[in-house]
């Protein structure tokens, strides 16, 4: 048992892949007391991509930078800032990449056109089918 305690002490003293010398930022893991504001903040955080572990949103990430971003977003929402304004501010710094929510950038227009195109193509195939049936 003592060996175990020593092992744990050793493990804890050398944190795996340190990302900070400080405890997490105040609102990294703390909700805003107003549920409506928290909902807004949460919805935004779920669509901001984490820069450290690049395939998660900052809402699902243990990375310190993600925690700091969460804290900053919550603080700015509490100060009355609109989520879309914060998103635009982040995109200004990190580019469209940082937003999982596709932006209105022209390069993303085909993405929004894809459903229309696919359904149109499907109907085209289907129409040929039905016409043949009638004849």
């Amino acid at each position: 048992m003592r060996m175990l305690a020593a092992l744990i002490a050793m493990l804890l003293s050398a944190p795996v892949l340190a990302q900070s010398a400080l405890p997490p930022a105040p609102y990294a893991n703390r909700q805003i007391s107003d549920p409506a504001q928290e909902r807004k903040a949460k919805a935004l955080m779920e669509t901001i991509r984490c820069l450290t572990c690049q395939s998660q949103s900052i809402a699902d990430s243990d990375a310190s930078l993600a925690g700091d971003m969460r804290s900053q977003i919550r603080e700015r929402i509490m100060a009355g800032e609109e989520p879309e304004h914060i998103r635009a501010w982040l995109i200004e710094r990190y580019g469209d990449w940082v937003s999982y929510e596709p932006t209105a950038d022209p390069i993303l227009w085909p993405l929004w056109g894809a459903p229309v195109l696919l359904i149109g193509l499907g109907l085209l195939v289907l129409r040929g089918r039905i016409r043949r049936k009638r004849s």
Partner: peptide, 14 residues
């Protein structure tokens, strides 16, 4: 920069 605020404002990712 205790809470990465300036880092984020600079668009730095690590």
């Amino acid at each position: 920069d205790a809470r990465s605020n300036v880092q984020i404002a600079l668009g730095s990712s690590g």
